[in-house]
C-alpha cells in the first residue's frame, strides 16, 4: 500500500449518527463497533442494498447470469454489496461500475492490508465512482480463516436482499446465506445445472428451502419490472415461421447446442446461429454454456 492511499482511510464509530442503522440491529451479532473505510461516506448508499456473492471460481454461466441480473438491480436503485474477492465478487463489482451503479466492498482483512493487483485496481475504481470500501479490521490486519465469515455478517447486515450467484459444495457463500437466515433477510440463489459443480451449493440452498430460486419472474418482482414478459408475448404471432419453429423445438426438447439443433432440424448451422441471435436480442432465448434455451 502506498502512502497516498493510506491518507484516504477513515473510521466511523457505532455512535456516529451516520453509522448505518441496519448494522445497529440486534440481529447483527457479534456487534460491529467500528468500521474503517475508504472513499467518501454517503449514508444514501446504505438505503437499498443488494448483496451479490458467490464462489471464487466462476463459470461462464455465472458470468452471464450476473451480466443480466446486476444491471437490473442497479437500474432499480440497489447498491451492490460484495467482498472484493476474485471470481463472482469482483465480477459483481465490475459489472456494477460498468452500468453506472453504486458499489460497496466489504473486506475480510485490514483496510490497509496488501491486496492483489486486480483487487487493488478495482478498489480504486469503486472509490473513484463514489462507492465505499469497508472493513472492521484496522490498518494492515491480515486475513485469517475466521475473518471472512465475520466479514460476511457485515455484508448481510447492510443488505436488504442477498443473491448467491454461484457456489460449490463448501463455498463461503453458504456461510453468507446462513447469516442471512439469522438476520431474517431474503436470500435468492441462481439455480444451475444439476451437472454443474459450481452450482451445487446454490442448488442445495434452493432444495433445502434456504433460498428462493432467482427466476426471471422473481427478478422482475425484485426490480418492479413486471411488464417485460408481457410485451414479448404479443409478438409471437408476428414472428417468422422458422423462428417459431426453433422456439417450439427448444421448449419441447429442452436446451440444446447449435450442433444438435442442426442435426434435428432441416436448417443449416449458419441459419440457426443467425436466427438464435435475433431471438436472443428479442429476449426469447438465452445461451448458457453453449446451450440455447427458450425463456
Amino acid at each position: 500500500m502506498c502512502d497516498t492511499e493510506r491518507v484516504k482511510e477513515k473510521e466511523i464509530d457505532r455512535d456516529d449518527k451516520n453509522f448505518p442503522e441496519k448494522l445497529k440491529s440486534e440481529l447483527v451479532r457479534p456487534i460491529v463497533k467500528k468500521l474503517w473505510y475508504r472513499g467518501k461516506w454517503n449514508s444514501k448508499l446504505f438505503e437499498k442494498c443488494a448483496a451479490v456473492v458467490g464462489a471464487r471460481k466462476m463459470s461462464r454461466y455465472g458470468k452471464q447470469a450476473l451480466g443480466e441480473i446486476i444491471p437490473k438491480l442497479c437500474g432499480a436503485g440497489y447498491t451492490i454489496v460484495s467482498g472484493l474477492m476474485y471470481g463472482v465478487d469482483q465480477e459483481a463489482h465490475k459489472l456494477t461500475l460498468e452500468c453506472g451503479g453504486c458499489a460497496i466492498a466489504v473486506l475480510g482483512y485490514g483496510i490497509n492490508a496488501r491486496m492483489e493487483e486486480e483487487a487493488a485496481r478495482l478498489a480504486g475504481k469503486i472509490v473513484e465512482r463514489g462507492g465505499l470500501i469497508l472493513s472492521e479490521y484496522s490498518d494492515i490486519t491480515s486475513a485469517r480463516i475466521w475473518t471472512f465469515p465475520q466479514r460476511n455478517r457485515i455484508v448481510v447486515g447492510i443488505s436488504d436482499v442477498i443473491v448467491v450467484a454461484e457456489a460449490g459444495e463448501k463455498s463461503g457463500s453458504l456461510n453468507t446465506a446462513s447469516w442471512a437466515r439469522r438476520m431474517n433477510k431474503p436470500v435468492y440463489a441462481i439455480p444451475g445445472s444439476v451437472f454443474s459443480p459450481t452450482s451445487e451449493g446454490t442448488n442445495w440452498l434452493v432444495a433445502q428451502g434456504l433460498a428462493k430460486a432467482l427466476t426471471v419472474t422473481e427478478l422482475n418482482t425484485l426490480t418492479h419490472d413486471s411488464n417485460a414478459k408481457t410485451q414479448q408475448k404479443n409478438s409471437l404471432e408476428q414472428m417468422e415461421e422458422r423462428e417459431r419453429e426453433l422456439i417450439t423445438k427448444l421448449k419441447v426438447e429442452g436446451p440444446m447446442g447449435v450442433n444438435e439443433i442442426a442435426r434435428k432440424s432441416n436448417l443449416s448451422a449458419g441459419e440457426i446461429l443467425g436466427r438464435l441471435l435475433q431471438l436472443e436480442i428479442k429476449g426469447w432465448v438465452v445461451e448458457e454454456r453453449g446451450m440455447w434455451k427458450a425463456v
Binding site: 449458419g270 441459419e271 446461429l273 443467425g274 436466427r275 438464435l276 441471435l277 435475433q278
Partner: peptide, 10 residues
C-alpha cells in the same frame, strides 16, 4: 441481410 449480420455476430 439481417440474418447474415446475426450469424456474423455469433
Amino acid at each position: 441481410l439481417v440474418n447474415h449480420i446475426a450469424e456474423a455476430v455469433q
